[in-house]
Design a protein around this nucleic acid. Structure first.
Length: 456
RNA sequence: GUGGAUGUAGUUCAGUUGGUUAGAAUGCUAGAUUGUGAUUCUGGAGGUCGCGGGUUCGAGCCCCGUCAUUCACCCCA
């Protein structure tokens, strides 16, 4: 007999996990809606041509490709096939792939429906994405993203509202110790200009991104091996190592970027976002101007964000930024977009570790009805119906079993209240109402039980 | 794609230099208690030691292979 398994890096979500996941998703959804975002869903599969080339070379390798149906080898060039190099034949045998993120499918949707869409268009999307890398801690092959993006406006209000939404989501989830790291791609470009690495921006960014992980020494080594000069590296690290308040950082960069148009623009944008936040009447708590934040995805062009929960070793739980020309890939140039993505799975892991899930998020039914024989069970059905009519999540124990077993069941399902019905209760209509957490019970009429539960 | 670690009851793990019948905790189940769970006491079920081969009189333990899991690197939510 073969033991059943599921593919590497995928998971089942049982009832207890689902309760917690939905708690996270509901909260995020609520915030997105509050800021005027509308839902969108796109297919799990996209045409491979839609996906390839959007995530860099590495990204292409991480795409799950779907084999064509039918006799998929028929069309393959025999010579290419004999070379045993899969890259030569993939485009022939696979024309679909699983989505890698939600942003690219969104861009595709916008381009396809540009006639119908009213811009600026604000959409949120909560769906699984797939990546074919090796799973490890906080890293799965199938995971959910919760994206909110705005396309069709350059306004920095969008950036400011992203910060607001992050704050609201974390507040709703009870996560207090976190930082929203913000940087701007133009600031990084300015940095690249200063050290004469205009041509080699991306390797500089990738190196910088690793700074907090592997330290200055190793980043220097790596960049040197990629052809950077000692001198220019000194310039870079002089800036990256600057410590101070946000205002001090801004002043410092302003003086450094006196000759760099790009650098100036980045600093100006960032200043404007801060100023907008101030106008909302929101404090700068949790906001951290991090010059060393780079983020991998190559399509970002403006502000970039990343959110980390402190004291949990799990990488970033949220990230995003502005991309000026994503739809350009699909023949619709000059549309600016900006978005944020929450990683539910990582949020889940972090909240689990910090024990932040409230008990209420795990409750299934509010009341369970326990009974002692056929007659009381039938009486209980009526009670259950009444409770449900009053909007109270109710279940009745379906078998005739010992009271012990029934209570045991309620206890395991974390059902907070149990109504016990025996012959006495049936006679005088006063039901035994038991609070499972406190272990107390009292005899009450059904109407007072209902008002008591609703009063909670 | 590269490197390391680990595979023993449902779960988490012990298991001596290779030696007879592989243990514990927890969970499951029945009872102590014929109307009371989470605490207590007693009994019971539960294992092809991942799989295949090798060394040996003898392998859970040593060797080789394989599969799975996991951690790290690259990259990323």
């Amino acid at each position: 007999m073969e033991k059943p398994t599921i593919p590497k890096g995928t998971r089942d979500f049982g009832p207890t996990q689902m309760a917690k996941r939905q708690y996270i998703l509901e909260n995020i959804k609520k915030v997105f809606q509050k800021y005027g975002f509308q839902p969108l869903e796109t297919p799990a599969m996209e045409n491979l041509s839609t996906l390839t080339g959007k995530y860099g070379e590495e990204g292409d390798q991480l795409l799950f490709k779907v084999l064509n149906s039918g006799d998929f080898l028929k069309e393959v060039d025999a010579i290419n096939l004999s070379k045993k190099d899969s890259r030569l034949v993939t485009t022939t045998i696979s024309e679909k792939g699983l989505r890698y993120d939600l942003t690219v499918p969104f861009a595709r949707y916008v381009v396809m429906n540009r006639g119908e869409i009213t811009f600026p268009f604000k959409r949120y999307q909560i769906q699984p994405v797939w990546r074919a890398d090796r799973p490890q801690k906080g890293r799965y092959r199938e995971f959910y993203q919760c994206d909110a993006d705005v396309v069709g406006t350059d306004s920095l209000i969008c950036e400011a509202e992203i910060v607001l939404m992050i704050k609201e989501v974390f507040k709703a989830l009870g996560i207090g110790d976190y930082s929203i790291k913000i940087n701007h791609r133009s600031i990084l470009s300015g940095l690249a200009e200063l050290c004469g690495a205009k041509e080699n921006e991306s390797s500089l960014f990738i190196g910088i991104d690793k700074l907090d992980k592997i330290g200055e020494e190793k980043v220097r080594e790596e960049l040197k091996s990629r052809g950077f000069e000692e001198n220019s590296l000194n310039t870079v690290f002089e800036i990256l190592n600057f410590k101070g308040t946000t205002q001090q950082k801004i002043d410092f960069l302003t003086s450094k970027f006196s000759t760099s148009e790009k650098g100036k623009k980045g600093v100006a944008d960032f200043k404007e976002v801060l100023s907008l936040l101030k106008s909302y009447g929101v404090t700068e708590d949790h906001i951290e101007f991090d010059i060393a934040l780079a983020r991998g995805l190559s399509y970002y062009t403006g502000c970039i964000f990343e959110v980390k929960i402190n004291k949990v070793a799990i990488g970033s739980v949220s990230g995003g930024g502005r991309y000026d020309n994503l739809t350009g890939n699909f023949g619709m140039p000059d549309v600016s977009g900006v978005g944020i993505s929450f990683g539910v799975d990582r949020l889940y892991d972090a909240m689990e570790e910090l024990q932040l899930f409230p008990k209420e998020a795990q409750i299934s039914s509010t009341v369970m009805i326990a009974h002692l024989d056929e007659d009381t069970m039938r009486y209980g059905l009526k009670v259950a119906h009444k409770l449900r009519q009053n909007g109270i999540a109710t279940e009745i124990y379906p078998d005739q079993s010992k009271l012990k077993k029934q209570l045991d069941y309620a206890n395991k399902k974390l059902i907070p209240f149990v109504i016990v019905i025996g012959s006495d209760e049936m006679k005088d209509g006063l039901l035994t109402f038991k609070n499972m957490e406190k272990g107390e019970q009292e005899k009450l009429s059904l109407t007072s039980i209902i008002s008591k539960i609703k009063g909670q």
